[in-house]
Computed example of a mutant assay.
Amino acid sequence: MSEVDVEPSRPQQGSADQPPSENTVFEILSNERRRFVFHYLKQQARRVYLRELAEHVAAWENEKAVGELTSAETKRVKTALHQHHLPKMDASGFVQYDNRRETVELADAVADLEVYLDVVPGVDVPWSRYYLALSTLGLVVVTAAWADLGPLGRVPDLSCALFLVVAVFVSAVVHTYLNHSQLRLGSTAEPPEVRER
């Protein structure tokens, strides 16, 4: 399971290309295969042939090296990319796909788009839920201290506030270190979802 976080790119001055809307970005990247396409094109930062793209996407999907793929595995992905995914990405302004030459590259409007995935392996809790739980706990602690309820009623308000600030700060530092540097699409050899399997 993953959640997508997008930092929209700003169009360059003088460029007629407008970046796709946030809804379009979420729609395109809601599909794992299209996320793999975006990851590979972002990583390569050049025009690539469909065959090359299909091999890498198939390798990630099948958890194999490119050299270990069967022709059927590559063909299945190539056909799906050619007939469905790349035309959809092209129509939304995400890529420029030449179906006659079978070449594809990221559109200028999304080349600088930063996309982060909150990959949640196994039974781990996604960061958004972690922060929600931390906020709820903080609200309970502050309310109990303020209303002099239970053992927290004897704890000074300043101590409660200091504890919460430190907890949020440490969580944010750990979150930033673990996620945004490692789980950005196009920043590593393999997509985040593949590395977390």
Rank of each mutant, 00 (worst) to 15 (best):
M1L: 11
V4L: 12
D5K: 08
P8G: 01
P11D: 02
G14P: 00
S15K: 00
P19I: 00
E22W: 07
E22A: 12
E27N: 14
L29G: 05
E32Y: 07
R33C: 01
R34N: 03
F36L: 13
H39M: 01
L41P: 02
Q44W: 03
A45R: 15
V48M: 14
R51W: 09
E52T: 14
L53K: 03
A58P: 01
W60G: 05
E61F: 00
K64F: 03
G67K: 09
E68R: 03
E73S: 02
T74H: 03
K75G: 04
V77Y: 02
A80E: 10
L81H: 07
Q83N: 15
K88E: 15
S92G: 13
D98Y: 08
D98I: 04
R100Q: 14
E102W: 04
T103Y: 05
E105L: 07
A107P: 03
A107W: 03
A109T: 01
V110C: 01
L113C: 03
V115E: 00
Y116V: 00
Y116P: 00
V123T: 14
D124R: 13
V125W: 10
P126I: 03
S128K: 12
A133D: 12
S135V: 06
L137P: 07
L139Y: 08
L139A: 12
V141I: 15
T143S: 14
A145M: 06
A145N: 09
W146E: 10
D148I: 01
G150L: 00
P151T: 04
P151L: 08
P151N: 04
P151Q: 06
V155E: 06
V155N: 05
V155K: 04
P156V: 06
P156R: 11
L158E: 15
A161Y: 11
L164E: 09
V166E: 09
V168H: 10
V168G: 07
F169M: 10
S171T: 13
H175T: 13
Y177P: 01
H180K: 07
H180C: 00
Q182A: 10
Q182C: 04
L183D: 13
S187A: 15
E190F: 08
V194P: 04
R195K: 11
